[in-house]
Amino acid sequence: MTKTVNQKAWLLVLPVFAVVAFSAVLPLMTVVNYSVQDTFGNNQFFWNGLGWFQELLDPTSQFGERFFDSLWRNLLFSAIILAIEVPLGIAVALSMPREGRSVAFCLVLMALPLLIPWNVVGTIWQVFARSDIGLLGSFLNRIGIDYNYAGSALAAWVTIVTMDVWHWTSLVALLCYAGLKSIPDAYYQAARIDGASQWAIFRTIQLPKMRRVLLIAVLLRFMDSFMIYTEPFVLTGGGPGNATTFLSIDLVKLALGQFDLGRAAAMSLVYNLIILSVCWVFYTVMTNVDAGNRTVLTESDPADAAAAAGSLPQATTIPLDRRAA
């Protein structure tokens, strides 16, 4: 092979490597270093091997129990917000106008919560939901519902979930809207001609066409909610008790509150691995969906095929993406 490969392109990637090295690789190495040692302050470290990891993954130990509690809490939280935000986002996207002046208005309105910094979101809800002066909190109490997110675990969860739904449903809706917009009008016309009901149109046209963006939405929302920190930290600080102590909050408590660097390092590595593996699963699923959508040339003229067999090595299949429009 006489191909001359242009090596200069690597130079362009170099700054990124440098930044990533300083911002990710070096800190990560430090964390790995911490995770196999114990420290009692004064910058004195003692070798602990895989001790922290064993303890972490053993639910019967105190540290392990704490970790798994946070993990389940976090998974439950992600499951709840996905179960609410995805159907709600789809519903919102479906009810958005498809053309006209109101489109721009809707889009801006939807984008607003996404533009607010996370700690501000936390603060807004902290004030909004306070049972003494908050609009929501005092209103609920006035109509006879005993609501205090600082005192009741259920109230804290409801508040955090509502806050997340308020904050992030528009992201799901916007992604779905983009997916819906890409469906040509002919599909809707054809469905009307075929006498399809709204539900049938949703199931046979809109949902399949939204599958890709939905996967992206689910991935983004899962990762985000799995790593949620700022809003619950501002709102409840992980309480009452440990009711809203998610992994990231627990990690900060452990590392910066108790200064237990070894345990915290081990926990953050495991946390990281969980996120990476979930990412990988999603990525695989998504690329498989793409591959499944590719058209394959299967029906060629039999006469052609026969003729081709005579003088040519058989059938090269070329991806058909170009055929589609």
Partner: peptide
């Protein structure tokens, strides 16, 4: 409206219900 007219239409770009088999497509209306 369209659905009340008993017409059928073939469009410029093929419209098929991607997730269905050919049989289900034909049975759909």
């Amino acid at each position: 409206p369209t659905e009340g007219r008993n017409i059928a239409q073939v469009f410029q770009f093929p419209v098929v219900y991607d997730t269905m088999t050919v049989r289900e497509n034909l049975a759909f209306p």
